[in-house]
Design a protein around this nucleic acid. Sequence first.
RNA 1: GCGACAGUAGUUUAGUGGUAUGAUACGUCCCUGCCACGGACGUGACCCGGGUUCAAAUCCCGGCUGUCGCACCA
Length: 483
Amino acid sequence: MADNKLSIEEMAIFCKKKGLVYPSGEIYGGLSGFFDFGPNCVEIRNNIKKEWWRFHVQEREDIVGIDGSIITNPKIWQASGHVASFTDVYVKCRKCKKPNKIDKSEIGKARCECSGEYEVIGDLNLMFKTNVGPVEGSTAYLRPETAQLIFADFKLVAENSRLKLPFGIAQIGKAFRNEISPRDFLFRTREFEMMEIEYFVHPKNINKCPFLKQVLNHKMNILSAELQKKHKKPVKMTMKQALDKKIIKTEWHAYWLATEHKWFVNLGAKPDNFRIRQHTKQELSHYALDTWDLEYNFPFGWKELEGIANRTDFDLQQHIKHSKKDLSIFDQETNKKIVPHVVAEPSLGVGRAFLVFMFDAYNDDKKRGNIVLKLDPKLAPVKAGIFPLISKPELIKIARGIYNELKKTYNLNYDKSGSIGRRYARSDEIGTPFCITVDFDSLKDKSVTIRDRDTTKQARIKIADLKDILRKLIDKEIRFSDI
RNA sequence: GCGACAGUAGUUUAGUGGUAUGAUACGUCCCUGCCACGGACGUGACCCGGGUUCAAAUCCCGGCUGUCGCACCA
């Protein structure tokens, strides 16, 4: 584990200082498990969502998106099993201290296997309840996950989009869980936003992934259930090796685990801060055949970013049973109606992704004397700072001209106050990748300097070329040293 | 949710039963000729409620929020 890593608390303080994240409603003391996001954070989060959508939906032919509602027909949560657990309470034996869960109606009657009495600790159900319409009693719930809306809308989407198996349905949206004890800043919150895909496959092809080639040479740190049993460390290997050795059992799991890892790494996360870990038999959900988590090396330990479960046809079958609707789709090849299997459901919290990119971007540059947030330009909240070297009208005029032109395309920061060094430092701290400075030579040669955040190196470029060069730098078509 | 500890400007910090020190940040101006220079002025805080007291940010009680440990995370 990295020793010099910022603690999660220090990250929370940094985010507060930079106006990124505040406790929600802080003037009233905040509310545990809820956060508000400030100006630069909303830019970063929007960028994360945009890049996620581009990678998982826009650039693919096999995945389409929906946006389900947060409050929906409560029967959905009955079918999914979420409501049933609403009547569960969490209890602890007064005698042997062993925890258990029992139904509310059993309070006072049920006893522990050691014959001890139970002490009620609290409700186990984590759904937020509300009323629809003004009448009390019309109970509805704030969705505790986004997945069920995809299952409920599955057939409509499949038919309207003329999708053929295998295909996926993606969604980005908020979900709510009344966690007993929110902890670790944005890691566990009561309101959170998820980016999720349910990927559907023909039951006959659950081990046939047409995209497998893309990931065969991709290397990952792998911690199988077997290795955990033997208390061994993760092993780094390619997906091909993992499949050949039957460590990862299905092609789809290998494909999605590697693909999700690649998404993070492509956006600047450090590859070795990730590993994949297989659920042990004990922690496997009743509906899942096999589950692998993509984990990240947080300062408070290796923690789950995405759980990628093979949920089989469990959810669709549940909705077929409860809604009494036929949710099967017609398969041309076999001329039969089938209920597809969900072999993988990459499901990632925006807040957790935000933390990953922040931790991997955060650099305390002792030489410079300030923090340098090395965010990928695509994620950076501000793409460039535009500065007149000093506050003189002739320089301001040129700088404002550049700013007004470029801000049609990019989020920029114009700043004329303080020393140039201070403005560079401020830009470094919120991750602005490039700074453009207008100096007295600009009056004569129609050029400006452009400064690179990561190296502090500068290059002189024509104002006329600025837009094109900035675009190429942000899109990584060229490197700064190529200018 | 239970237990321990804590809560002073955005951040950080001094301090006391008589409303508060400094740093940093931020703003305006001066200075500026490429990496948080310097100067002047300014903005800005005792978590909330109740009690004790002539007087509470300070003592006591409760709450909220946070950190750590336990539990929980279907």
